[in-house]
């Protein structure tokens, strides 16, 4: 349900918004030709953009904070690794299986959507932690126990790089489509006031379930692609709470509920995070914690949310 008009002051922004992402993707496509460190940097940047954008569907648009969001990533990584290493399924199909299992997991967790706010966050976090323990205690013949699974035999950084790029583009495109659609309006209404949305005829249960499934699909696929790229997985890194935390912070910093927000948030904060990690490895988490505090205090709507609030003419362009 995009609107028709575009005011004069927002034309520059419109050009940036329309051409910028295409130019970035084009540049990124050439990255595997560069040094491995640059390739790795861009791979993880695309990974975080995918995670933050997908997270935006359920938190930014719908208002549910899944604090155990890492569970989908972890399941995607493990299913991919198990399917390939134990069952001999080709890697593309293994990654897709991870996506399917991630969606199945979201359906299993779906009843928790009846609760909201901090209660939902805590329950979701508990589910993710339970899943981590379950995976770590499954027979070693399947999951490799605490040592995890090696995928070194199919290590292919270039193919996994381009797969992540495709996934990132697909995620951003999906978020854009959902945000501009009737479903997007329904989700924003649910985020604002589910009771009022119901009274107006919005099918809250069905709409939020669609959002939840979409929000689960992309991190599950991303988990599989990242497992392929790194060629090793283990329970500690696949179910690391820091993945949820960073996803939330990146999405919030850019602007929840907007399409461009999580992209801008991931690009700017990942660069900062990388810089801090390189210069002050011991202080990385401390600085991340401080950043969250500052973010909540001074930029609760994120970069895009703050800019569009102050400049109404940009709302039609930067979504």
């Amino acid at each position: 349900m995009r609107d028709r008009k575009e005011s004069t002051p927002s034309r520059m922004a419109a050009v940036w918004v329309r051409c910028g992402p295409a130019a970035l993707v084009l540049c990124a496509a050439l990255v595997p030709l560069a040094a491995p460190s640059i390739s790795s940097y861009i791979f993880y940047l695309m990974f975080w953009i995918t995670m933050a954008s997908a997270f935006n569907i359920i938190f930014g648009l719908t208002g549910y904070l899944p604090f155990g969001y890492v569970a989908f990533y972890g399941v995607g990584a493990y299913v991919t690794a198990v399917m390939w290493s134990r069952l001999g399924v080709p890697i593309p199909l293994s990654i897709l299986s991870g996506g399917v299992l991630g969606v199945a997991l979201s359906l299993l967790f779906a009843p928790t959507l009846r609760i909201r706010g901090i209660y939902f966050a805590i329950v979701n976090f508990s589910c993710a932690m339970a899943l981590r323990i379950l995976v770590a205690n499954l027979p070693e013949a399947w999951t490799g126990g605490s040592l995890g699974i090696s995928l070194s035999a199919i290590y292919n950084p270039n193919a996994s790089f381009y797969t992540m790029m495709a996934l990132m583009v697909l995620t951003i495109w999906t978020v854009g489509r959902v945000s501009g659609s009737r479903l997007g309006i329904a989700l924003r209404c649910i985020r604002e006031d589910p009771e009022a949305a119901q009274v107006l005829g919005v099918d809250v249960v069905r709409s939020r379930l669609k959002a939840w499934i979409l929000a689960a699909l992309f991190p599950s696929l991303a988990g599989g692609v990242e497992a392929w790229y790194t060629a090793i997985i283990d329970p500690d890194s696949s179910f690391n709470l820091l993945i949820t935390t960073k996803t939330i912070v990146y999405a919030m910093f850019g602007g929840l509920g907007t399409v461009m927000g999580p992209v801008i948030g991931a690009v700017s904060l990942y660069a900062l995070d990388d810089l801090i990690w390189g210069k002050f490895p011991m202080l990385n988490l401390l600085i991340l914690g401080l950043l969250i505090v500052l973010l909540v205090l001074f930029l609760p709507r994120g970069i895009v949310g703050t800019v569009t609030r102050r400049h109404a003419s940009l709302r039609a362009v930067i979504r």
Partner: peptide, 10 residues
């Protein structure tokens, strides 16, 4: 406008 469209999404 989106407020007004909310009741007629289906």
């Amino acid at each position: 406008m989106e407020n007004l469209l909310a009741p007629v999404l289906s």
